[in-house]
Design a protein around this nucleic acid. Structure first.
Lengths: 190, 190
DNA sequence: AGAATTATTCCTCTATAGTGGAATATAGCA
DNA sequence: TGCTATATTCCACTATAGAGGAATAATTCT
């Protein structure tokens, strides 16, 4: 989330992407249904496109508004040693460990959860519409309930589900269960 | 990625979010430095905002252009049983298993890689600027080299790194190494 | 219910987005 | 080098975004 939108930089991104795709302004004009003049003006940061026009440009470049507008200010590397990770221990028998650092403007988490046999880790969500979760079972058997629908997942199985559902994680088995969960609360590409 | 931008729907999203935040048009006008008339027109889908104005509105609503413009058309659930997953077996002694389904407009992958002792899985990337990778070591010891910088990661450790670096994965240990990798080639929130 | 206050839409006007064609700049070829 | 073709920027014009204030609608209070 930036305070100020850099119109010139957006123009640079459009031009870079256009050249990378090997398009002339005329090519892009035809694909995007935007005049050559306007494209030139946008690339030089001379005019501010409406979201309609920028959407057309992005689509023609097989990109997205978000990507053309984005501002990169992320760190290059962050190591989280095991003992530096945030751990949530629940007395009822499950543990959640956050494996990803907090990055400015990024709403994403990678985590590893373990659930003891016979333990119900409780209900989560729904998160905001558009959020996505990806889960991979490392060991044991996980019972995952999404909006009342039951999924039984074994070691090695994986599942994607929309984050705006109610989700319950349970270990109905006889041995500990562990899984990795990647949760993206951000937006889809447009 | 939608073919056509729905201006009325964007307006609905702005209004819903504004009401959720408990703002009047006047409140939002002051916060966003956009006239009350323009806000009303945008909400009613009557006018097309420039990206400058929409950015101001999004910022004032503590949201992003991407989120105001996005179109949700993702599946709710997709299970990938172990034997349905795409597996890349390399003869030199490493294996990569894709754990996430392909979703329209989403450039994200969750994968699990195993590397035999003494094996170098090779060099990857650099991916596009803004992409992010999150890696968690499940077992063994992983040697990860990012743009020439060496990181030694043990079971339980995790690391985030920008995707536009050259990355090399190696198992210098005496036992197999496995790790989970979440790779987001998409954009950051704006 | 009526009055006062607040919120939203309508209206007019100015500034600029966006277009099509001309002028200029650049690249490729003989 | 000069010529041709292609790419880009300039220019004049139309359409509309965006602002400020008036009119209308909705809500709150007595």
């Amino acid at each position: 989330m930036t305070e100020s939108l850099d119109i010139a930089e957006i123009g640079d991104r459009v031009r870079n992407l256009r050249l990378k795709r090997g398009f002339s302004l005329q090519d892009l004009s035809e694909r995007a249904t935007v005049s050559v003049s306007m494209l030139s003006a946008v690339e030089r940061g001379e005019k501010v496109a409406s979201i309609q026009v920028l959407h057309q440009i992005a689509t023609a470049l097989n990109s997205s508004i978000a990507r053309l507008v984005e501002d990169e200010s992320l760190p290059r590397v962050e190591v989280l040693r095991r003992d530096e990770q945030i751990v949530m221990d629940d007395r009822s028998g499950w543990q959640r460990r956050i494996l990803s650092p907090v990055l400015p403007g990024i709403e994403f988490e990678l985590m590893r959860t373990t659930i003891e046999p016979g333990v119900d880790a409780g209900e989560f969500g729904p998160h905001r519409p558009g959020s996505r979760e990806y889960l991979a079972v490392e060991q044991g058997v996980l019972t995952l309930i999404l909006d009342g629908i039951i999924f039984q997942l074994e070691a090695g199985d994986s599942i994607y589900y929309a984050g705006d559902s109610r989700h319950v994680y349970r270990n109905d088995g006889e041995s500990p269960c562990s899984y990795y969960l990647a949760m993206d609360l951000g937006s889809s590409s447009i």
